[in-house]
């Protein structure tokens, strides 16, 4: 029994030894649509993310209902007609970092990530280059950007007058992740 307690104690202490698990403190996701007649951004400050450097796991998601484009009417149309957030409230990415990260270098480091991006009920294999910056206070800054084709995720744009959204959006994420206490 004493041996078992020792084993349990050792296992319980394991995460503290690594302390390589990070979770978002603040996270922003922005999409940009540019057309000749109208350009606009959609922004959410509710990006949630998790990063485990021990096994290189990355897991981010966003509540799509939190995206704001600056015009409530457009937001409502986006939620109801494009993203169908009542059925598919989240977009997310799960994957692995495939490049080493040196936490002792407090400067931006390029990282390559592979995994699955899901949006509007469609999951697609996804490869992404981003930047990861270890900061002196122990937190990590994660930045990435990529183009997103709406048709890849079965998102149709109604043919409406005056208001246009580009078929291809530019996505940017920026998040600060802080170490998680065991």
């Amino acid at each position: 029994m004493r041996a078992l307690i020792l084993i349990l104690g050792a296992l319980a202490g394991t995460p503290a030894c690594h302390a390589q698990v990070y979770q978002t403190q603040v996270g922003t996701a922005v999409f940009t649509s540019r057309t000749p007649s109208e350009s606009f951004d959609g922004t959410s400050r509710h990006l949630v993310g998790y990063l485990d450097l021990a096994d290189s796991t990355v897991d981010f998601h966003l509540d799509l209902n939190t995206i704001r484009t600056g015009i409530a009417l457009r937001d409502r149309q986006m939620r109801e007609s494009f993203l169908e957030t009542d059925r598919f409230p989240f977009a997310g990415f799960k994957g692995k970092i495939h490049t080493p990260v040196d936490l002792t270098r407090h400067e931006p480091q390029s990282v390559f990530v592979m995994g699955t991006f899901d949006l509007h009920g469609v999951e697609r294999h996804f490869e992404l280059a981003g930047k990861l910056t270890p900061r002196p206070d122990g937190s990590l800054r994660v930045e990435a950007g990529w183009p997103l084709n709406l048709s890849d995720y079965r998102i149709g744009i109604p043919g409406v007058l005056f208001y246009r959204i580009n078929e291809q959006l530019a996505i940017r994420i920026d998040a600060i992740l802080i170490p998680q206490r065991p």
């Binding site: 509710h46 485990d52 409230p89 997310g92």
Partner: peptide, 27 residues
């Protein structure tokens, strides 16, 4: 013992929760 071994793996996922669970209806 099982919980302690699995806990890091189970905790590895960030649960997907709506920021506002009961939203105002749109439109």
């Amino acid at each position: 013992l099982t919980v302690l071994i699995l806990a890091p793996a189970l905790g590895a996922q960030v649960p997907r929760q709506r920021v506002v669970e009961d939203r105002p209806v749109d439109n």
